[in-house]
Write a protein that binds this DNA or RNA. Structure first.
Lengths: 256, 256
DNA sequence: CGTTTGATTGACACGAGTCAACACCAGTGG
DNA sequence: CCACTGGTGTTGACTCGTGTCAATCAAACG
């Protein structure tokens, strides 16, 4: 099963066969969007919720001095603005970074999912809380890691997230991001990103290319970055607070 | 009405009189906790949810090199770990910064609130999403603002959050935080915080004291920091997701 | 009182920004 | 097929923000 939306949400809750079928139906017909396209602007009150099925998008904001800060990457399986219904309006913008395949889910569909499908509701909130954990990790990176470790850490995180939805496995991992985008993510200049990448390349940890970065050996990069993925809360949980323990269910964590 | 828990949640949803009475009953009997006390450690699976009724606590993590990064301040009215039930275990720690008054809410009480009190449930999720927006704002600060603007920005945010729960008003605003704590928040050294504070003091924007910072004129600090509180989503919303009806009631931000 | 925590200040080193020049592809249109 | 063009990457020189170390001082506390 190759649907990244389903694969992701299955990490957040035990879905029934009907849940899976419903999610597959909702995400069955994605539409292509060009790279660099603004999906939602700051201050908008979007009617639909956007779902990424392929490609990479991002949350970002533009500062008075013109600088851009990317605050999150949105990868296949991610909902862009699930929470806007509660907060009212966007306090940041969302744009595609690469060409994407997107699904537009009407607000009513989301309301149906949260109101009438408790396991899906739980998975959606799990996803929101993981997003928050990722933000905290980025904050730690900006505050306490130098750019080398922070960049390596970011690549490890993205690898883990792509792997979760079946889009990364053993073998080289390619990230279609420019050095300027990476700079706007870490809060450093693209010139400095270039110097960091040069160092990492000399260590054999990454292979920069035009508009892309290749990670030849994720294990070595993880060691370099001292990467601990527990903040992603990917280990599939079974049972829990609400309903009595449902044991085991092999985590299938393996990288095949 | 002086209950910060109620005052905060009223910003997130229209609560009924019964909702308010229930929340007041739950938070009626706080217990004192000393400053610098660890409430929850990383990796814990806490049984109870902690509610701050007075004082300041924080989320933080300790890095391998011993450095501390503070990721959030928890002020009166804030729940410390509402989401642990869904994520399973803490990916960071929580400690008091100042002496606090805390309430321990059993997991079962939280489940009752979310399952049987839809307006409170909505307010709790609103609160979680605002926390996420605050994290994004901090990320922007770390990435794109110099330490002076970032620190001023932080003071403005904390003022707004204290004001929301009735603990800050016209007149000087005192923050009981040390320079080391501020450094661990912005990701800079306490020495540098000291130099930043010296500059801000010369501008008359803050008055540092031993273990505390006084903001004599919040309006001037807001101007200096170019502070826009919209990311806090404090404008009380009416109606709800179902209907359109909404009106952003005057923010009442005025400093009179 | 002595001890401790927090604040202050100076000297020096280093990470990262800025500016600028240049190299390199990829797509375009002639 | 080639020249042009614009986005991207690469590199060097210089500046500036911040870190580190260290000494000193001031206030709180037992």
């Amino acid at each position: 099963m190759n649907n990244p939306f389903v694969r992701k949400l299955e990490r957040g809750a035990e879905l029934s066969a009907e849940d899976v079928a419903l999610l597959e139906r909702l995400s069955a017909d994605p539409e292509p969007v060009a790279g660099g396209f603004d999906l939602i602007g700051e201050g908008d009150r979007p009617e639909n919720v956007h779902l990424v099925m392929a490609g990479i998008a991002c949350r970002y904001t533009i500062l008075p001095d013109g600088g851009r800060q990317i605050m999150a990457y949105l990868v296949p399986g991610d909902l862009c603005d699930f929470h806007v219904a509660i907060l009212g309006q966007m306090d940041h913008a969302i744009a595609t970074l690469t060409p994407c395949q997107m699904v537009d889910l009407p607000r009513a569909v989301i309301d149906d999912l949260t109101d009438n499908h408790p396991r899906i509701n739980r998975a959606l909130w799990w996803s929101t809380l993981v997003d928050e954990a990722i933000l905290r990790d980025w904050l730690v990176g900006m505050g306490r890691r130098d750019a080398d470790a922070q960049l390596a850490h970011l690549f490890c995180e993205l690898y883990a997230r792509f792997e979760t939805v079946g889009l990364a496995g053993p073998g080289p991992f390619v990230l279609p991001l420019t050095q300027e985008e990476l700079g706007d993510t870490l809060g450093v200049s693209s010139v400095h990103i270039n110097r960091v990448l040069t160092r990492l390349r000399r260590e054999g940890l990454v292979v920069p290319g035009r508009g892309k970065i290749t990670v030849p050996d994720i294990a070595r990069l993880r060691a370099f970055a001292d990467f601990d993925p527990s903040y992603l809360h990917l280990a599939k949980r079974t049972g829990d607070n609400g309903g009595e323990g449902r044991e085991n269910a092999a985590p299938s964590e393996g990288d095949e």
